[in-house]
Design a protein around this nucleic acid. Sequence first.
DNA 1: TCTTGTTGTGTACGATAGACACAGTTTCTG
DNA 2: CAGAAACTGTGTCTATCGTACACAACAAGA
Lengths: 239, 239
Amino acid sequence: MTDDPTDLVRLLWGPGPQPRRGPKPALTLDGIARTGTGIADAEGLGAVSMQRVAEQLGKTKMSLYRYLPGKAELIAVMVETAVDDAPEGGEGDWRARLTAWSHGLVETLRRHPWLLEATVGPRLMGPKELGWMERALSALDGTGLTGAERMDAVVLLTSHVRGIALQSRAAAPSSTPEAQILAALGTVLRDHGADYPHLAAATASSVRSGTQGQDQALEFGLDRILDGLEVLIAGRARS
Amino acid sequence: MTDDPTDLVRLLWGPGPQPRRGPKPALTLDGIARTGTGIADAEGLGAVSMQRVAEQLGKTKMSLYRYLPGKAELIAVMVETAVDDAPEGGEGDWRARLTAWSHGLVETLRRHPWLLEATVGPRLMGPKELGWMERALSALDGTGLTGAERMDAVVLLTSHVRGIALQSRAAAPSSTPEAQILAALGTVLRDHGADYPHLAAATASSVRSGTQGQDQALEFGLDRILDGLEVLIAGRARS
DNA sequence: TCTTGTTGTGTACGATAGACACAGTTTCTG
DNA sequence: CAGAAACTGTGTCTATCGTACACAACAAGA
């Protein structure tokens, strides 16, 4: 009766718990997910284990299996918990709305960097996650784009934001492993720079400090994508 | 003497093994990496363990540690092994060259889907991986863009290709877990479609069959990005 | 020849996800 | 109101993982 995927659908979409008999649950799905996100925020997704989550809740790990079928589902509800509500987006034209949308998304990813690792591969999305897609699609109302084109445009924007967030992590406050890697990459480029002239030139001329550079990269890509969309939309309107 | 990051630098960049005393090594770093990629190609990155790799080579798992400091380094050399050589890119204008480059990159990611998971987070890149960046940057020679802008443009393209590859995996031959998820998502959209009108409309009008849809999505985003770059480059040339 | 550094192996440890049976608790039902 | 039924939390167990460590076999320099 407890199908594999159906279980996850119920956890993300289904109604809340409606038990009748038996002791009252001491935990809630939301509390478990919140604890998991707390650990992931502080120490990364790798630090999230059933043990850690359970002992932070004062229970044994096996009790968690009364609420979740397994770890994969824990990550799924953690994602849905960590994702903010999609921002209201009723102001301005499609360009302004998509810009605000992208900024909101990158903000979410910066707050929870582990979302990048947790959301690779095909997976079932929750209400809030789908809400983000819905908002972006609604911004493209009245642009003359087809459904497929709107979808492709949203995917394009999402990919860009993800890419920026991925870079942001590398340039973050540097919890030392990142800094070491950055330093090693610098050494490599110094030693083998001759084999990568364009790369060496580009990095040399782009000595931008941490967060500022990421913001610039975000705006750059955003402007390019939106410019490209504008070309298409303008062409559609003419015909 | 064996620094943590220095070790990985030597594995990816340094000279080959130059031992003197002792028995000749029965394995090679390349052979190990190749075995790992084989497993990852067939059964996913999760199926790659020291045990699996070692027993497929007819050795014990501990012998691998004579060649690699740990699993993280194994994944790193696997990535460098799986990545194809960056394609020669001397033909056509910057637009044609970047188009070919993107197609090549998406092809690589389709051949080795696990590269998506293996390349999240900041990490040290190998010669071939840097070669891809170098090629893309060289395509932007003479466009009047600054170093930082060229870098941002390449990152933008890479993010798009990654996003497409991520989608491609969901629409792949469907090794059943993906198909189940797709079906579950369809069910969810049918049940809650009213809350996501734009999403429902967009998916309904975009019933494209598997691979074809991914190709279209790739081209769509590519055209948008390149159009956007063209706007910028044209503006630069005028001033 | 003897020393020295290297390779492969066996054993061991801690941490992980999860299966399963059992005891305690609450509520529905007869 | 009493018994049954369903549910929760726990303790125990297994398989697998990455990896530390000591040791025997081995090959080349001194």
